[in-house]
Amino acid sequence: MLLITCPWCGPRAEIEFQYGGEAHIARPADPVALDDAAWADHLFMRKNPKGKHRERWMHRSGCRRWFNMERDTISHEITAVYRIGTTVPGKEGT
């Protein structure tokens, strides 16, 4: 069981949250210009790293807000929790 700190509600149990996949995937500015391979890449291809991973979570059983989290996929250590529209604290511009 992870103890996840919701940016709005504070520390809550993992059972209250919903995982939402990799974060910071920008929608193509001009989707019409993409070929099928590029579109499929945008829709389906994910990093799946072994280590630090930035991902989206939603506080489903709490305030129902989406937020971002940086989590180590090996140790499950949570190194950052930050609101949608902001970047990882200390890593602006990355």
Binding site: E16, S61, G62
Partner: peptide
Amino acid sequence: AAQSLIARAG
């Protein structure tokens, strides 16, 4: 006051 779960019920 808080929103949470009791026995898996919201």
